[in-house]
Design a protein around this nucleic acid. Structure first.
Lengths: 246, 246
DNA sequence: CAATTGTGTAATCGGTGATTACATTCACGA
DNA sequence: TCGTGAATGTAATCACCGATTACACAATTG
């Protein structure tokens, strides 16, 4: 018998169309009352889950955290939500659709983290703010490698599938352009080619974050402080490199 | 019936232990006489393939080229080699082992490309050679994105599984350290911290290559020239950034 | 020529994404 | 209040994949 629950014991085959026993096992249910967007009260043992979409996304984010982006499987997410393997299909026609939703949530968090870091920067100096941007970027990426991977790798969801991720990301890129433009207006930069600086800056932080994800820094994972110092040093090097020498 | 060949037609079940018809279909066989390491002459229709290991690696490299590193499957490689799905097991106990072999071959090519580019540089100026290194790196990575991905992402083979890849890569990194050290000895650099420059340089090119792989440059893929110019500009920016201003 | 070793085949297992028919429930309107 | 249809979850199934085993066949070697 095909049983998606955790009981693997062989059961006597239920005659094909016999009415099922009304007793249902139900798992997790995220017992801290998941308030849906509509503030519905979820009775604990209903046939309908009530908030499956959200729970699936949460489970997928969790799976990614635990075992990397590749470890996310629709079936396992369903298992953790306590529903059958086919249930997610109603909400996400394909695994990619689930991953898109995951990416949107992750991107939202990423953006918030950076926005918060910049908001905390009291200075008006665009290069100082640029530094803060880069540092927040790297810190978030190193703290949430799997989520960063989902967002960035363009392998888990089609980039043109989620307008949210696309626009949100474009906004971040624009922000760096803005900051560099301001710095240029103040005569703080050596080179005139903003475009190259922008893309080089992106490549630098992206590469550092990805190297971390891809296991190029085997020493870390524990030495959190060293990683942070390294991140800071790299950004300093970049900013010093493009800034006009005093 | 389970048939690994291309014929999907239902056949009458062959009685379990009946002697098989001696007629065998045999695919590809890489008909340009694959000379094994031992220079064996491969007769075209033997039961034994004769050079399966090599052919499997070649097929895997091809699959990666065609559909990205994730598109490599042991079964498909076996299919292209014209053998059963279980055959590769003799040579590669797991998919990762196959990918390790693929990575070794790719790394070998990568290293050659860079070595050749540096050898062509007549100049003795370490920064000029450093530039050549970076450019060769980016050019190869952009020309062989899937192969670069297999080498670098540490997801397709355990980094400690292949001494070849590890050492080969360490040698490349050493090379950059050497070049930067030479530049420092000649007083060409602004900063004293070689370690940071080394890692920032790595992150920069790695990030650029990875952004290309991950689809962050949607415009390209056709505009090859633009990508090349961009690569050059980025490396120039970096070298100018770390070099002492004239 | 015979035995041993290497190599490919056949068959099977468990896991996964995808898809369909069906069961149950909920929400809305008569 | 009650029925009906739309939502939503279940059951069952398919194809594909990686892994593994027992077995068949070939190549080599003595």
């Amino acid at each position: 018998m095909l049983c998606w629950g955790m009981s693997r014991s062989a059961k006597p085959p239920p005659s094909r169309s016999a009415p099922k026993s009304p007793v249902r096992k139900r798992a997790l249910q995220s017992s801290a009352a998941p308030r849906g967007a509509k503030g519905r009260t979820p009775s604990p043992k209903t046939y309908h889950h009530g908030d499956l979409r959200r729970v699936l996304i949460a489970a997928a984010l969790e799976l990614a955290e635990e075992g990397g982006a590749d470890a996310v499987s629709v079936r396992e997410a369903a298992r953790r939500a306590g529903v059958s393997p086919g249930a997610p299909f109603r909400h996400f026609p394909s695994r990619n659709d689930l991953m898109s939703a995951v990416a949107e949530e992750a991107q939202r968090r990423f953006r918030s983290a950076i926005a918060a870091a910049i908001a905390e920067t009291s200075s008006e100096d665009p290069l100082v703010r640029f530094r803060a941007f880069g540092l927040a970027y790297l810190r978030w990426a190193m703290k949430n490698p799997a989520h960063f991977e989902v967002i960035s790798s363009g392998k888990y969801f089609a980039h043109d599938q989620s307008a949210v991720v696309r626009e949100d990301n474009a906004e971040l890129i624009d922000m760096t352009g803005q900051l560099l433009g301001d710095a240029q207006d103040r005569g703080q930069l050596r080179s005139a080619d903003l475009r190259i600086m922008k893309i080089a800056g992106r490549a630098l932080v992206y590469g550092f974050a990805r190297m971390n994800i891809d296991g190029h820094f085997p020493r870390w994972g524990v030495a959190d402080a060293e990683a942070d110092q390294m991140a800071e040093a790299i950004i300093t090097l970049f900013v010093d490199g493009i800034a006009k020498p005093v």
